Simulated assay, not measured.
Amino acid sequence: MTLSILDLSPIVSGATAGDALRNTIDLARRAEGFGYHRYWLAEHHFAPGVASSAPAVLIALVAAATSTIRVGSGAVQLGYQTPVAVVEQFGIIDALYPGRVDLGLGRSGQRRAELASGRGADKTGNTQDTSAEQPRARIVDGLLIPPPFDWSRLAQDPRLAFQASLLQQPGAQTPDFAEQVDDVLAFLNGTHRAHAVPGEGADVQVWILGSSGGQSARVAGERGLPFAANYHVAPSNVLEAVEAYRKAFKPSKTLAEPYVVVSADVVVADDEAKARELAAGYDLWVRSIRTGAGAMPYPTPAEAAAHVWTAADRKLVADRVDTRFVGSPRQVVERLNVLRRVTGADELLITTITHDHLARVRSYELLAEAWNRP
């Protein structure tokens, strides 16, 4: 069982993007020493509290600062770039750091465009019926599966459509996600009519990331690619995502059997009380995302405590807060083992955000030590 890291390069209150990026490079170096397998960078736009808006650039910087840990994207949003541009970017990184690069692909950009268009598609690609009775939280073999988050209100926010328009050239239309993935694979293996240099023949491992049992899971399975399911972003859909991927899986030159990574939000400290103190601010940070403002600079515990919460606020963030893994090393390892067992994950992708950078580093260190302890 392997542990890996997903980093958003969070900008905390009182700090700058430069501080966040230097912290990312520092954490990657330390994570390599702790024994983590991969270090992935996310792609987020228009978020005052996130510095990872250009993952290929940041991946190259992390690769240069490390020597053995795999580096990659979690994930490149294909809705905003052409396949050849993505392959060329990652081909350059692979040319300098061969055999260490993961190219994680996601359709988040396309999904945002669907939401902005007013079609109100949810994470499964279906239009939500907000008048119907919504599912309740359930426990599956010890794992909390909360009700799904309703994206319909956020979809009506005009900021979403405006931001989406800034990420593409005027009049640009994004092809189907499956077609884009096929183009990426063709450019990499040299079967495309055009040749991407650098890129063609690169030793890049392609991944698909998904938050539901929809197209992303099916594309990954049908092409025999490894799949990353988002428990930390969409915990309500993780089981259906993994099931859909495995059901669609066909052996390929890449994989003989399905390979699943599942993500989790984690904060570890020497004891539970300290961990919960460090974890403060997460609910307010999630609220800023789900109100359409974009991820705010991550608040201090004191700043978080000053916020006056309403019942609607609590409901807005409950699924993310309730599925976070916070506690002592032993507590968190026990709960992560439940996540691994229930989802059948081959690997866990850990994302940790605290206001204090050294506390975040220490959280990863404590987790690695506890995970590897007999």
Rank of each mutant, 00 (worst) to 15 (best):
I208T: 04
G74Q: 03
K247E: 00
R38D: 04
V261A: 12
T191F: 07
A275V: 00
S108L: 06
P374V: 02
A155R: 08
R330A: 13
T300E: 10
S211H: 01
G224D: 01
V286L: 10
D283C: 10
A15N: 13
A359Q: 12
R107S: 11
A264I: 06
D122E: 05
A275H: 01
R335Y: 06
Q215P: 04
A345E: 04
F34P: 01
V197K: 05
T354P: 02
H307L: 11
R320K: 14
A248K: 06
Y259F: 05
K123Y: 00
V242H: 02
L225R: 11
G49R: 12
V12H: 14
N126L: 01
A155C: 06
G118Q: 13
Q180T: 02
V204A: 05
D26S: 15
K274S: 15
D150I: 07
G344T: 01
S363T: 08
R290A: 04
Q169P: 05
D94C: 11
L6V: 09
A137E: 06
E179R: 13
G327C: 07
R373W: 00
V181P: 06
P83H: 03
R324D: 01
A155M: 03
G142D: 06
T16L: 07
G18D: 06
V286K: 11
V62I: 04
A368R: 11
V50F: 02
V317I: 10
G106F: 03
A51L: 02
D141I: 08
H192D: 05
P297I: 05
T291Q: 14
R246I: 09
Q77V: 13
A244E: 10
A196R: 07
A279S: 13
K247C: 08
D150Y: 08
D183E: 00
R340M: 01
F227H: 06
P146T: 01
A318G: 05
Y259Q: 09
S252T: 02
K250C: 02
D7C: 15
P301Y: 03
T24R: 10
A85W: 00
E347M: 05
L3K: 14
T343F: 03
D346Q: 14
A20G: 09
T174I: 13
L166S: 15
L61F: 05
L336P: 14
V333L: 03
A248N: 08
V261P: 01
A248Q: 08
L188T: 02
T254L: 04
A164F: 03
H45I: 13
R70C: 14
A132R: 10
P329S: 14
G106A: 13
S108I: 12
R159G: 15
N230I: 00
G201Y: 04
A318N: 04
A304F: 09
N337V: 07
R290L: 14
V338L: 10
A60T: 09
F249R: 08
G106E: 00
L209A: 14
